[in-house]
Each structure stands twice: as structure tokens, then as C-alpha cells.
Design a protein around this nucleic acid. Structure first.
Length: 151
RNA sequence: GAAAGGAGGCGAGGCGACCGCGGCACGACCGAGUCCGCUCGGUGCGUGCUGAGGAAAGUCCGGGCUCCCCCAUGGCCAGGCCUGCUGGGUAACGCCCAGUGCGGGUGACCGUGAGGAUAGUGCCACAGAAAUACACCGCCGAUGGCCGCGGCUUUUGCCCAGGCACAGGUAAGGGUGCAAAGGUGCGGUAAGAGCGCACCAGCAGCAUCGAGAGGUGCUGGCUCGGUAAACCCCAGCCGGGAGCAAGGCAAAGAACAAAGGUUGGCCAUGUGCCCGUUCUGCUUAGACAUGCCGCUUGAGGCCUGUGGUAACACAGGUCCUAGACAGAUGGUCGCCCCUGGAGAGGGAGCCAUUCCAUGGAGAUCUCCCCAGGAACAGAACCCGGCUUAUGUCCUGCUUUCCACC
């Protein structure tokens, strides 16, 4: 499963921006970072013309509706590219299933820690949903949203 | 039939549908320009085509391509090489093909780091007496020397069975070691020894065959350890360095700059701040980060013919088959095929009890259900190789043994 363009993140500056983000949630094998959208950082190719025009006219409104995601699997997780691709597809797939239930207006970055390749798929998916609940990004759990993320 | 050897091929069984994603083309739409023909740019749209490998891997060799430095040609010297049987092939190679020698296998066949130790220098630990050198044990003691039974002799002395192991001889045997100065046998000798002879191994010379590595034969003197991945000698080859993050173009911003640690501390959570580290330039400024080019047509694949044992070459025809950049191939489903399992029905021939008959297991066929159709592994500038990983896979060929005709 590959992410559609609307939900994809690209560009070095975007990742620097998210690595500096304050909001982090640690699981055993995953780290979820949450930041607010910052369109000047995004690579121009990923923004459709409609989005680009909308950003020019009403940036705040677009930011509130935008939801983008990326998974980072370093070579420390697994030396084999096949394994890294498998993990990335697994988590992309999990994200796409959860998109209807997620709060809009955030950019998400999910890093895998070195032990993650040894875990089973079910364990990682369970951890992913735990992290979502912990971060308060699910629509049904508004009361748990930490103050750090709410503007 | 069994076991084995070797060659070639394939790589999610085949066909199709839907969803998602990369690329290209056309259309549609949007924007800008316009000499009103159109041109350029963009896209959350539509349609069509297309989308990982035999190793894409390891990055171990050889190149292409790009920039920098140096020399720009040839010779000589110096330096470098983990190049080293011969002859071919190739853009090149440490690769490939054919052959030679040696080693292994009954054989098909396999392996081979295979120049020179007689150019020179060095080293050979431990053990062992001794490592180009020797005498520890042992053997002998013929020849000298000493003792000496006996004999001859008037005596000195002479001859002599035997003994000693003093001088000495020996390198057969023992022991040590990777290695002890050719090996085996017969003769020979006091004991031994290429001391002599036969065969074998090695060396040299000659003849002959071969393009060559080398092969074969004859003769000779008898004979000379290993190590060159020790220095070295010989032959061959060689500008150096960085690598597509090379390099080029464009736009924008700018020194309280930028990148990196895929992130250490802090907060008001963001074109944040602080700390530590790093380029060129330092008078101006540039480079990187953005977009585009490089970017996939190439020592290219396939087919046919010719030459060649072959690697390969040449000629003709035909085909275009991923080009991403936080990095595209994954899911779901339908039909057919194959494999395995369970069930139902029919059932050749078989066995047991018996008169037909009954019971038991059952080759094989049909139907239905379930499971599976993999493993190693993911293009990142591009080629030629090597190495490593991987399958109850497929197709020829060859050898040995067994059975039958």
C-alpha cells in the first residue's frame, strides 16, 4: 500500500521541521512525532495546483484540513531492503485505514527503532493504535489531547 | 532401475477483473504570451500503453562517462602491481575459451597461487649429535696401536688363534624433525657407501614431433633440502585523484549564512532559541539545500547466415523493454491447471471362510470440500566479469553398477 499524494510528505526541510517538533510519543518500537502543517517547507511537486491556490488565498483553512504522514525505516532496523519495504507498506496501510477517524490539521512522522524488525506485524499494529490513542489524534478521544499539541 | 558427473533453461503456475502508486503519450481544463495560425507552463481530471533481478546483493576486479591536478610525443631511469604454464578471445580485465604439466576419481569428470631456489643474499622456531651440516646410540675396527694362547728362535726378534675399542672407518639401521644429501633390489665390503649393476625419480646434452607450454627417444656423469604471500631476479602491464551527492543550466535568497548529529538541553510549539562540530572564500562573493538536464540506445537484446574445436568475430534482418529522488510493483477476487490431505460413489485383479455367497484390504476413475503454488531477495549513472545467497523446479547429454532381451 502506497500513500496517495494528498497524504504524503516530501522534502528535506519538512523532515527537519518535524524532527524539531516538540510533540513526541514513544512506544517500545515506534516513535510518533506530530507537527503542524508548514506549506513553504513542502516540496512544490507534492502540492496540487488547487492546494497551491488555496494556500495562497486561505492558508489557515487549508492547514486545518491537511493531514500528511511519513514512515522512516533506517538501515539500523534491518539491513535488507525487502524487510524495510515490508514494514513501510504495513504502516502505510494501517494509516490509510485510520484516516477517516483521525483529526485533521497535523503532519505525522513515524520512526521505527532498531528492534522493530524482530516484532510481529500484530505487535507493531497494536503499538500504532496505542500511539494514536496516546496522542489523542483519534476523533473519539478528544478529552485526552495533550495541551502541547492544541494550539 | 539405482548412484553419480556435467551442460543449458526458468524464477510468485496460466488467463482475466477491480482498487492504489511511478513513468510516458494523447485529450480535457486552468494560466500566461500572441504576428490570432498557435506557442509555452501547470494539474487533486480522463483514456491508453508501460513498470525490478538472476543474482538488482557483496562492492572484489576491469572499463565507459564527468570534474580537478599533472604531463601533453618518444626513449631511458626511478616507482607501483595480490599480473605470473602456453596459445587465442575481448574495449579491457585478476575474466572467458582451447591446450600442457601435476594431483584426485573405476569412470564420466574435477581441482590447480603453475615463472626463477643452478643470479645472489637471507631464514629454517621446537626437537635433534648434526639444518650445506654431523657422529648421540649403533656397526666395524680390514689398516695402525696395545694385550696376548701357541709356535720358531740362544736372545733381541718374527709368525699367529683370540681379545681391547686407543687411533680411525662408516652413513646401512635407531632416534628427532616439514626436511638428514636420490628410491627399491642384487652384488660388494672389516663394516658400509652410486662403490658396481638393473629399474624408477631428478639434472644436463643431443635427436625428433609441436605455433608454444611441452611430449617421445638416446647418451652422460651418478645426484644438488625447503622457503620467492622473505628481499630479490626475469617477463608483462601502468599518468594521479575523486566519483552521478560526478558535473551543467536556471531561479530565488543571503552571513544574526548553510549543512550534519536521521537530534543533546530549554521554552511561549515554530521561516524557535541555546550548546558542540564542519566547506571554499574572507575585499566582493560562491557552493549545498529548490526546479530542470545528466537519465537511459547501449562494447544492447533476439533470429538467420558465414568463419572458428571453442570463447568470439563479421554480415543481414528485427525489437526498444523501469527511470524513482523520504525513493513507485502491493492488496482483493474469479476461472482453469498442478501438488498434498479428508470424504462419497463405481471398481480390474487379490486374500479369508464357504456351495451360489459373505467379509476384508484395494491399483485406478469420477464428484465435492480444505490447504498450498515457493525460496533468495528490491533498480538508484551505465556496461563486462567474479563471488556469495536461493528451488521436493524443468530439459537434453555422459559415466559406473545391477536386471532383462
Amino acid at each position: 500500500m502506497v500513500l496517495p499524494r494528498d497524504h504524503r510528505l516530501s522534502g528535506t526541510m519538512v523532515f527537519d521541521h518535524l524532527y524539531r517538533a516538540r510533540a513526541r510519543f514513544h512506544g517500545g518500537n515506534l516513535i510518533l512525532r506530530v507537527g503542524l502543517p508548514n506549506f513553504p517547507h513542502l516540496k512544490p511537486g507534492l502540492m496540487g495546483s488547487r492546494v497551491r491556490i488555496a494556500v495562497q488565498h486561505n492558508r489557515a483553512a487549508v492547514c486545518q484540513e491537511d493531514l500528511r504522514f511519513a514512515v522512516v525505516v533506517s538501515k539500523k532496523v534491518s539491513k535488507r531492503a525487502v524487510m524495510r519495504n515490508r514494514l513501510r507498506r504495513l504502516l502505510h496501510n494501517a494509516f490509510m485505514k485510520d484516516v477517516p477517524h483521525l483529526r485533521r490539521g497535523y503532519w505525522l512522522l513515524l520512526s521505527l527503532r532498531p528492534g522493530a524488525a524482530q516484532r510481529s506485524e500484530d505487535q507493531l499494529l497494536q503499538e500504532w493504535s496505542d500511539l494514536l490513542r496516546q496522542s489523542g489524534l483519534c476523533c473519539g478521544h478528544e478529552q485526552h489531547v495533550p495541551a502541547a499539541v492544541i494550539r
